[in-house]
Design a protein around this nucleic acid. Structure first.
Lengths: 241, 241
DNA sequence: CCCAATTTGTTCGTATGTATG
DNA sequence: GCATACATACGAACAAATTGG
C-alpha cells in the first residue's frame, strides 16, 4: 500500500518517486561505488512500494549506467564514469544533490570547448541565419535598460549557437547548457557590470559569424568564455566555497 | 512461454532480448517518431514474453529517451534528439542497424572537435605523461613492419588523449570513439599507405604535447583529423555509398 | 560433487487509476 | 456523466542462477 500524507492527487507516479529516491541514495553517498543495495523486497519495504515498482525503478537506473544487477549478488552501484552524464535527469540530480567542485570545473571546461567549436561551425556555414543571434543581443541590451530578462536572452543566444551547428551531438548538449546557465548565472554572478562587459563580446561573436570568419568567431568566444570563467572563480572565492 | 530453437543455455535474459527487439523496431523504422507502439499485452504476445518483462524493457528505453509512456495513449516513439546519443548501447544499435550518412558525418565532425580540444588540454597540463603516447606510436610503427596490430595501437593513442584531459565529460566520449574506430577503420581505409602518412602526424602530436605547446598540438591534430576525413570520404566514394 | 541458501528472473491474476471520446 | 482502453500497481508463486559450505 502506498501511504502519502497529503494525497490531494498523485502528482507523480510511484515509479518516478522510486527512481528519484534511489538516485538520491547514490548522490548523497549513502551507497558508494561497488556498494550493494538492499534486495528488492527490502527496498520495497523501505519505500512502501511493491517489488514490481522497485524492479522497474532499478531498470531505469541501470539504463542510465548508475546501477548494475547480478543474480544472487544483488544491485551494485556503478562508478560515475559509467553514468549517462548528459542525461537531463542525471544532470538535474547532480546539480540538486551533489554539486561538487570537480563536477562544476569539468563542466565549465567542457561547455567552453563545445561553444568554441559551435561558433566555428556556425561561422563556416554560409546558410546560418544570424538574426536570432542579434535578436538575443538586443534582448540583453534591453535587459540592461531594465526591460526584460537578461538570463532569457543570454540563454537564447547560446542555444542558437548549438542549434546553428546542425550537429546532433552538439545539440545534445542543450540540457547541460540549460542546467549550467540556470545554476551558474545566479544573481551574484549576473551583476550589471558583468553584463555590460559581456554584451560587446556577444555582439563580436555575432559579427564574426555574420562575416563568415571562423577564426575571429573562435577568438571572440574564447574571450567570452574566459570572462565567464573569471566571474565564476571570483564568485566562488567571495562566497568562500 | 519463451521458446528458443536452440536453447543450450539462456545466453541473455528475456529482458535484454526484449529491449534489443524493441530498439530494433525503432532503428528499422517500423515505428517512426510519434508513432504509438502496440499495447503491453500485444507486445508480449508478439515477443512471447509476459507483460512484466515488456514493461521493464519499456522502462529501459524510456530511461534512454527513446520512448515515452502516457496513460491511455500508450507508448510513443521519441525523436532522435531526445535519445541518449552517447549511451554505449544506443551507439552500438545505431552502428549496427541504422548507420545513415548524417549520423556518420555528425560523429566525424564531433569526434574531431573533441580530440582537438583534448590535445590542447593535454598539452596545457604539465603533469601529463607522454610515454603512453610514444608507446602507442611505437606500436603503430611496429605494425607497419608486420609486428602487431595497427588498430590496437591507434586506438590506444586516442584513448590516452581522452584520459589525459582528466575531464569526466570528455572521458565519457570513449564509447563513441571505440565504436567509431571499430566501424570506420575497416581494411579499406587502413591501407598501409594511409598508415605511413598518419604515423608522423601522431608523432607530431605527441611531440607538441611533450613540449607543452597547445597551439602546435592543436594544429597537428587538425592535420590528422583532416587526413582521416579525406580517407573516409574517398572510401565512401569508391564503395559507392 | 552436491546441497542449501539467497537473490534476481519470470509468470499470472486481479484491482485501481486516468485520460479519451 | 459514462463507458472504454490503456497504463499503473499489487501480491503470490515458482524458476533459474550463483555462491558457499
Amino acid at each position: 500500500m502506498h501511504e502519502t500524507d497529503q494525497q490531494i492527487r498523485p502528482l507523480r507516479s510511484l515509479h518516478s518517486e522510486a527512481v528519484e529516491a534511489i538516485a538520491k541514495w547514490l548522490m548523497s553517498g549513502r551507497y558508494n561505488v561497488d556498494a550493494v543495495l538492499p534486495n528488492e523486497a527490502e527496498i520495497g519495504d523501505e519505500l512502501g512500494i511493491s517489488r514490481t515498482v522497485v524492479r522497474e525503478a532499478i531498470r531505469t537506473l541501470v539504463a542510465k549506467g548508475m546501477l548494475q544487477v547480478r543474480r544472487k549478488t544483488g544491485t551494485i552501484v556503478r562508478p560515475l564514469s559509467d553514468w549517462s552524464l548528459f542525461d537531463p535527469e542525471v544532470l538535474a540530480w547532480r546539480f540538486r544533490y551533489n554539486r561538487d567542485t570537480v563536477f562544476v570545473d569539468d563542466m565549465t571546461q567542457f561547455r567552453a570547448a563545445i561553444e568554441t567549436i559551435a561558433v566555428e561551425i556556425c561561422a563556416s556555414n554560409p546558410n546560418f541565419d544570424c538574426s536570432d543571434l542579434y535578436d538575443a543581443c538586443d534582448g540583453m541590451e534591453a535587459a540592461l535598460n531594465g526591460d526584460g530578462d537578461w538570463f532569457t536572452a543570454d540563454l537564447a543566444f547560446h542555444r542558437h549557437l548549438l542549434k546553428g551547428t546542425g550537429n546532433q551531438f552538439i545539440l545534445h548538449m542543450q540540457p547541460m547548457l540549460d542546467n549550467f546557465f540556470d545554476a551558474m548565472l545566479s544573481p551574484e554572478v549576473l551583476l550589471p557590470e558583468n553584463m555590460r562587459i559581456t554584451l560587446p563580446y556577444h555582439r563580436a561573436i555575432a559579427d564574426a559569424i555574420a562575416a563568415g570568419d571562423p577564426v575571429r568567431a573562435r577568438q571572440a568566444m574564447l574571450q567570452l568564455v574566459q570572462k565567464g570563467r573569471e566571474d565564476i572563480l571570483n564568485r566562488i572565492e567571495s562566497i568562500g566555497k
